[in-house]
Amino acid sequence: MSENQKKILEMLANKKISIDEAYRLLNALKTEAGAPESSTEAGTTGKPKPKYLRVSVQPGSGHEHDDDVERVNVRVPVSLIRSGMKLSSLLPPEAKDKVTGALHEKGIDLDMRNLKPDDLETIIEALNDLEVDVVSRKEVVKVFVEQ
């Protein structure tokens, strides 16, 4: 029991504060104690920050022993994605236009010129919820993040 918790309980015993107030103060202390950990390990949403982006291709059910199916396991550190995006911010506008055009041709509507560092952090935080499962008869493709 911490010194602050003792003080709150003493104040409650001495009837200086009500039960509700003591409860609120104890809760506030708990939140405060948990804050440093969450600020280092978790993002602004309170979720732990993603560490790795994983892409896995495995044989589907019934094909586990089928050696013709390629097994792919890729683990990309999220920090590498972040650094790569920062590196891309150094591209001159003409090159960004070309990249945007090439992406558009492939059906991806992503404007490289509008990507800001804040957006990048939001995208990386949003990766926490990313989970792609493509299941076919032969293969199972999974894209997910690891904390």
Partner: peptide, 21 residues
């Protein structure tokens, strides 16, 4: 540019690629 390239280099530990048949 040099700093960003060094950042990319420093972010590489943990990268793993495994492809097999």
């Amino acid at each position: 540019g040099i700093r960003a390239a060094f950042d990319v280099l420093c972010s590489m530990p943990g990268l793993r690629v495994d492809v097999r048949n």
